[in-house]
Design a protein around this nucleic acid. Structure first.
Lengths: 332, 332
DNA sequence: CTGTTAGCGCATTCAG
DNA sequence: CTGAATGCGCTAACAG
């Protein structure tokens, strides 16, 4: 920058001000500086800038468990679309479900002095997030509520959506309805299980615990679990799945077993209409989840000085989507 | 950090060294420092560190056009999995196909002094990347070759894969084969079109230009374009698509038209086996693309001092995958 | 093995 | 309106 200042025949200070559009700089002076910048190809060093400012690296950290899952990539995109408008960049950290990795990722983001963190914590232990928040880094949780500390969060209506999806199966006349879900430690999964149970209870249908399978993360595991349910002596006539991984796995099991088991699940997904099976899905706006999380974060960042406002919690609503057996065209 | 040093009764310098595992520090001293760190909850400020070092923010920038496309999220994941092992973090920038956004994103990454950039440039103008490389930031291109400057890159065998896919349709006896692809400015799309043309030429089948439709980015556009081809007086009996967006769009058009048009395309995708249609896909290891790009980048970062090595180019091979009409189970 | 000096590039403070 | 001094937090380079 000194080179620029010299070339423009001003002090480094004036050059700095000119670049930050400080109104106190004479237009003519600014022009000279800008010209020098262009000629020398100078670029301000944002690292030095943030060090000096003591805050504001212009980065927002997003911590997710699996970016390959469209759910998380859309979340990240939603965040980026909002913070990008404030000239903030998104740093994405993928934990691959590893709590240690999540912990170190968050620690690293704090050490980098990111302006804020949006996280989808994998497990129940959120002390690392609590620590980050305690150090003054705004934290927003997405799709999971904070446990053990205060933070803004944006949730999906897991309970209501799952109940509505299960009610749909009940309305179709099913009484033996299975449940396939994520490991119990996953908040959304257990919340959706609660919704499933509530629907059955309200319909006076007893829950047969043999029909409840938690713990499947990927489609292969889900297909295996679904296959086991279908192989029971009195198999369920319908399945409700807590996420798209389980729904797709269940679809494969049902296809393989050649039964006409009814299927419903949480999360819409591409080509759901093309599977040649009637399918009820609990849908919601995935991008909106990220956008809302980003909005909460920006708000928190703006008011970081002064009395911290009470933590806010928003809930994204769900809708039921029905796909027909042959919605897209003729079968084989 | 001064507080830590004081608490441990050493100088700031020694504290710094202790934290960086400098072997010259007495174990007992290190213990004292570590204890002080724990008690004070101190975290080293990585911003200051990178400023001092003058390089090495520990960040790798990944610039993609659309993170919602599994292709790009997998690429990013592949990159992250490799650079993560070197304690580097991944900054993801989404350009949403906007050249201006891409330009400013790259400029920003350079201003942030990222250690390297992996980019999938959207258009043919790569001057911003050339500028970054010229400023000493290692740049690796993924799935597109550099134009107008030298850089490492990792490509997919676009030409060979498309030719093989088209040959498969020819081998099935088709002679009227349509082509659906991305806008001409997209390198992969035109390369795959070349492969398609080569296959037809080698089989002495003239290319009917009415059958060639470029310009579809999303499935809806692709479905419309495919629908137009199928509505021709002498419609193609088979379609080759240059990417998964076009393949899925074509699938929808074929389903809607209830024809038995054969379908082949570049890019494997989830549920491709469940569409109830025979389908030939040109597959390749998407994660590997990112991993290899990361490897090239790490290599380049390591040898950034000294004579720059000649640019390297690796090509990821493709394989043909066949999905049957009713692979997963019974139809409607 | 440990401490002192100096400076990375920028922006706030206070003088001109 | 512009300039000079000072320090953000950290670490190479040189003492001791």
């Amino acid at each position: 920058m000194r080179d620029v200042a010299e070339r423009a025949a001003v002090s480094a200070m004036t050059a700095s001000r000119a670049l930050r559009e400080d109104p106190r700089v004479l237009p003519a002076t600014r022009e000279r500086v800008l010209a020098a910048v262009a000629e020398l190809g100078y670029r301000p060093n944002k690292v030095a800038r943030s060090l000096r400012l003591g805050h504001g690296t212009g980065l927002v950290g997003v911590v997710v468990t699996n970016l390959a899952n469209p759910f998380y990539s859309r979340l990240a995109l939603g965040v980026d679309s909002v913070v990008g408008q404030q000239d903030l960049k998104t740093v994405i950290g993928n934990t691959a479900q590893d709590p240690d990795r999540e912990r170190s990722l968050v620690a690293d983001l704090v050490a980098r002095r990111v302006d804020g963190i949006i996280a989808v914590p994998a497990g129940a232990d959120q002390r690392h997030l609590a620590a980050a928040a305690a150090e003054g880094v705004p934290v927003v949780l997405a799709s999971r509520p904070p446990v053990g500390f205060d933070a803004d969060c944006v949730l999906v209506d897991d309970f209501g959506g799952a109940r509505a999806g299960t009610e749909r199966l009940l309305a179709m006349g099913h009484r033996r309805i299975g449940f396939l879900g994520s490991p119990p430690a996953v908040y959304t999964g257990t919340e959706r299980l609660r919704g499933y149970r509530a629907a059955l209870r309200d319909a006076d249908v007893p829950v047969d615990e043999r029909y409840v399978r938690q713990g499947q993360r990927e489609t292969a595991e889900a297909a295996a679990a679904a296959g086991e349910l279908l192989a029971l002596p009195d198999p369920p006539t319908a399945l409700f799945c807590s996420n798209n991984r389980n729904t797709i796995g269940a679809f494969r099991a049902i296809s393989a077993a050649a039964t006409d088991t009814a299927l419903a699940g949480f999360d819409d997904f591409e080509l759901a209409d093309a599977l040649g099976l009637p399918l009820t899905l609990v849908a919601y706006d995935r991008d909106e989840l990220g956008r809302e999380a980003a909005r909460l974060l920006l708000d928190r960042m703006r008011h970081s000085k002064g009395t911290p406002a009470a933590p806010r919690r928003t809930v994204v609503p769900t809708t039921l989507v029905e796909y027909g057996a042959r919605h897209v065209g003729p079968g084989a």
